[in-house]
Simulated scan of single mutants.
Amino acid sequence: MKKVYISGLFCLALLIACGSPDKTEENVANEKPVATETNDVQLTAAQVKNAGIEIGALEAKNIHKTIHVNGVVDVPPENTYSVSVPLGGYVRQMTLIPGMYVKKGSVLAVVEDQQYIQLQQDYLTAKNRLKFTADDYTRQKGLNQTKATSDKIFQQVESDFNNQKVSVNGLAEKLRLIGINPASLNEHNITRNIRVYAPISGYITEVNTNTGKYANPTDVLFEVINPGGYHVNLTVFEGDAANLRVGQEITCSTSSNPNKRYIAKVHLIKPSIADDRTTSVHCDLEGGDDLLPGTFLNATISLAASSADAAPDEAIVKWENKNYVFAALGNNNYKMIPVETGTSLDGFTEIKTSEKLGNIVVKNAYAVLMKMKNAGE
């Protein structure tokens, strides 16, 4: 019984040994190496030559820093005119629609009301009475000088004469306000309607009335804008606003046509910061007749040039949304170093990283990146 037990153990040990063979040299050679994450890579001289890799140092460049902001096309108040009727009335003639171009002095509408008749009547009556009071004043003045009449009577006549002049002049201004010339008004040309004229040349943007509607003095009937007075209203963060100056040139473009550039110059910087930490910058737009008020614009503001360390664009690689350069360690060894980039200009990009960089790969850095990443697969 003891012999059988020992024989069983021996067979079990033999089976385990057969199922787990020792590693041979061939098996070890076929095993894949474990990939390790590293920022170092070494190339051969042939690889450096074939890839066209070149080594160099950062260069000091005068780079214009830029600010990218957004804004809209706007019309300054002096180029926008709201048209109303000072004394109110019924609109009897009007043929305008938004978008129409009108010239300064052209008739926008014809308005009528009985108060226009009454105003003209009052003016002519006051004008006639003024003539009477003027003659009476002249007569009483002569009598007073000879003491043929009392000072009290002369003062009363003088007061009536002065009051009548005030009344005539006031009514004359009311007539001018509604577009009637008092100098040419007489009893034969009293009219019941007035004409509303365009105050400026431009485009009708709003029509708030129609024929037959009564227009109150406070109602805005039309809005006219002068397209030659467009400007750009930019929204700039407070940190960037401190770098802006009146007269700086700005390049603008629309989202629908980004290749077409418009030039504007800073005209006014609002001297206050809003709750969202921004301020408004008003710029005079040169040209832009094809733009419409309210058009969204992308703007680039160039700041004063400053000296900065810069690397060629070919020296900077992007990996996993971060920017890197390859430091040359010697003997074709390279190390990938993260960097913070700034403004780009004429094929160079500003390097803001405070770490001191020696020689780096300045050409075909992506070839080094591909070699390094492929080496770990």
Rank of each mutant, 00 (worst) to 15 (best):
residue 119 L to N: 09
residue 158 E to H: 07
residue 213 K to W: 00
residue 178 I to Q: 01
residue 290 D to I: 05
residue 256 S to D: 13
residue 188 H to R: 09
residue 323 N to G: 01
residue 362 V to N: 03
residue 241 A to S: 14
residue 236 V to M: 03
residue 314 E to Y: 00
residue 14 L to D: 02
residue 303 L to R: 04
residue 374 N to L: 06
residue 275 D to T: 13
residue 345 L to Q: 13
residue 146 T to N: 11
residue 231 H to Y: 08
residue 128 N to M: 12
residue 303 L to A: 04
residue 16 I to G: 00
residue 277 R to N: 09
residue 303 L to T: 07
residue 330 G to I: 01
residue 376 G to S: 07
residue 126 A to C: 01
residue 3 K to I: 13
residue 194 I to N: 04
residue 165 K to R: 15
residue 116 Y to R: 05
residue 47 Q to N: 04
residue 342 G to Y: 09
residue 284 D to G: 08
residue 235 T to V: 15
residue 213 K to D: 03
residue 263 I to M: 14
residue 171 L to M: 12
residue 4 V to N: 08
residue 41 V to H: 00
residue 4 V to M: 10
residue 175 L to P: 06
residue 344 S to A: 12
residue 164 Q to W: 04
residue 206 E to A: 12
residue 57 A to G: 07
residue 352 K to T: 08
residue 360 I to C: 06
residue 308 A to K: 15
residue 186 N to M: 09
residue 218 T to I: 03
residue 185 L to C: 03
residue 293 P to C: 11
residue 209 T to S: 05
residue 276 D to N: 13
residue 251 T to L: 13
residue 126 A to R: 01
residue 356 K to I: 05
residue 153 I to E: 15
residue 343 T to R: 06
residue 136 D to P: 06
residue 325 V to K: 05
residue 276 D to H: 05
residue 348 F to Q: 03
residue 311 A to D: 03
residue 270 K to L: 08
residue 95 T to E: 15
residue 324 Y to E: 03
residue 359 N to L: 10
residue 61 K to F: 10
residue 108 L to K: 12
residue 128 N to Y: 14
residue 210 N to I: 04
residue 57 A to T: 10
